[in-house]
Amino acid sequence: MTLKPPPLLLAVLVAIGGMLLALALGLLSGSSGWGWPTHDIFWLIRLPRVLAAFGTGAALALAGALIQLVTRNPLGDPHVLGVTSGASVGALSAILLLPAGVPFGPEIGAVLGALLSMTLVFSLAWRSMGRGLALSAQPGTVVVLLVGVMVGAASGAVVSFILAVADDFKLRNLVFWLLGDLNGATLWWPAWGAAALSLALVWPRAHELDWIARGDAWAWTIGVSVARRRRIAILAACLATGAAVATAGSIGFVGLVAPHVVRLTGLRAARQLLPFSALLGGVFLVLADTVARTVVAPTQLPVGVISAAVGVPVFLMLLLRRRA
């Protein structure tokens, strides 16, 4: 099998076209059907929501691509770092403890929870992110992943505890938050900001992430500061994940799959993989959210339901068609 990447110009045009189409679809369809919305609905509800969906998808896909590269693990996913569960604890605590009507309570709780779990993962795994260079072909970052999974598991227990003690009225809010929901997501810029910031953090030496993915000890021998690149990439992934989770709750699937779909098109180098994954993740989540709020209108489904229901079969189809 030979590998030839597609022409970059074509890829850019397709990506921009897809982005515009998805944004238009998202803006023009609503619970009352298809068409141009009134001024207030457009500016106060639909535009922020569509932008929030795009930013969330982009941030998650970017985080997924980064984690896959630096841990050299195709199963890398933004949620393995424990940030998502940490943010969930923060958001659920805010919903449980704060009186209703405190502005952005869950969002602020999620940001605090994400920062706390990030700090925990970093302080526990700091040494191991620099170590593990030599002596085996095994990925040197297994420790980071395990620490992330452990912090996630501990946070998961706290989440279960909160769900167990919450009253019925709050339980519905809590569960929807956990499922990943863009309903009421009015702050769109934090996810965009975090995605842009994390891309900017890794961009100057993004090509070195490709070399690390080819072997971290070997990358060091060709002159890459592996420990620093790895720490920066994981920090960037944590920031993007935290902002995405604070915006829309825990949305699975897109962070794992968007980078793989981009790779299947032949855009494999990190300088292409990272921005195109972000674009694809954003487009995908806008479309999924559009379906989620229109398919059984006026009831709104959590976007996580749609992203998995549509995304899983599409991805399996792409994957298996290639192998056949």
Partner: peptide, 29 residues
């Protein structure tokens, strides 16, 4: 490590390739 990279090259015994990449690109890096 940057200066050392121009003086010695190390070819390990095992390779693990988690992602698709063409042969010339691995040499090029």
């Amino acid at each position: 490590s940057e200066a050392l990279a121009r003086r010695r090259a190390w070819c390990p015994q095992f390779w693990l390739d988690p992602f698709p990449v063409s042969a010339w690109e691995t040499v090029a890096c």
